[in-house]
């Protein structure tokens, strides 16, 4: 599905953000990328869709080498990669529906976008997704009138509108409170699994990563320092990734109940409130 080979990024300032990252995702799974600030998490994710140009190395998505594409072909490739951001990055003065539909921009022309005339199929998909993320009835609300959790739900809907082959998720919960964070992570992972879409998720919160991800990759100094299952995350591994610290309170027993909501309706109510 996705294969990253020996990816290097050196910024003009001389900072070596990525120093030979090699990573393979060959099944639809949620991969949490953890690591301290400056370890290269954001750079890695942005090098995949080339919002940041990698200095060298390969990114191959479904047999397509993204790193060598021309601008026009890159746009086509980006249509297949949904991205979700820490600060949501919704266009604040547009409505929820306009934001969700902006996930289809790669498939409509300028005038269709100008007149907001998206194909009917896109509009019904958008309604379905807004319903799924818990924002039924919010289509005409302006994005700047939403709470953080609601904005991130729109962000998720926008990314999924692309019917992506890959989700790139940059710190989805860093601007949210702990409860909303868990709801958003749960929703994100559920949707990724439902649709069989692999997801690369940058995340600061080790506990959240352990609870929701299928696989954890630790970055340190621009390199992969750990790649394994959440249960393999030990004191020693965290020390390798972040440095010496008392990790006993951070590592939680993997709690299977966490992933399985007891009651669908209760979850939906929670979702709409968040």
């Amino acid at each position: 599905m996705l294969s990253i080979a020996d990816l290097i990024k050196v910024y003009p300032t001389g900072t070596r953000a990525l120093n030979g990252v090699t990573l393979k995702i060959d099944q639809p799974q949620v991969v949490a990328i953890i690591g301290s600030s400056g370890a290269g998490k954001s750079t890695l994710i942005r090098c995949v869709n080339r919002l940041i140009e990698p200095t060298s190395g390969r990114v191959v998505l479904n047999e397509l080498d993204v790193t060598t594409l021309s601008r026009a072909d890159l746009r086509k490739a980006r249509r297949r990669m949904g991205m979700i951001f820490q600060e949501y990055n919704l266009v604040e003065r547009l409505t929820v529906m306009e934001n969700a539909l902006s996930g289809r921009l790669g498939y409509v022309n300028f005038w269709q976008a100008y007149r907001r005339r998206y194909p009917p199929a896109d509009i019904s998909t958008a309604f379905e997704l807004l319903d799924r993320v818990g924002l039924k009835g919010y289509q005409d609300t302006r994005a700047d009138a939403l709470s953080g959790g609601q904005r991130q739900r729109v962000g998720i809907a926008r990314a999924l509108m692309q019917h992506p082959d890959l989700l790139l998720v940059d710190e989805p919960t860093a601007s949210l409170d702990p409860k909303t964070s868990r709801q958003i992570m749960r929703l994100l992972c559920e949707l990724a699994h439902e649709r069989g879409t692999p997801a690369l998720v940058n995340i600061h919160d080790v506990g959240l990563a352990q609870s929701y991800a299928d696989r954890i990759v630790g970055l340190a100094g621009g390199q992969v320092a750990f790649d394994g299952t959440p249960s393999q995350l030990t004191h020693q591994v965290l020390t390798d990734i972040y440095g010496e610290e008392d990790w006993s309170k951070t590592i939680r027993k993997v709690d299977k109940d966490d992933k399985k909501p007891k009651d669908r309706d209760a979850l939906d109510r929670e979702s709409a409130a968040g």
Binding site: N49, L51, R75, K76, A77, R78, R79, R80, M81, M83, F85, E87, N89, L90, V91, E92, S102, G103, R104, L105, G106, A113, G155, R158, Q162, L168
Partner: peptide, 11 residues
């Protein structure tokens, strides 16, 4: 950030 998000959709 908003510009980045729209660029990322392939617009």
């Amino acid at each position: 950030g908003m510009v980045e998000a729209i660029e990322a959709t392939g617009a």
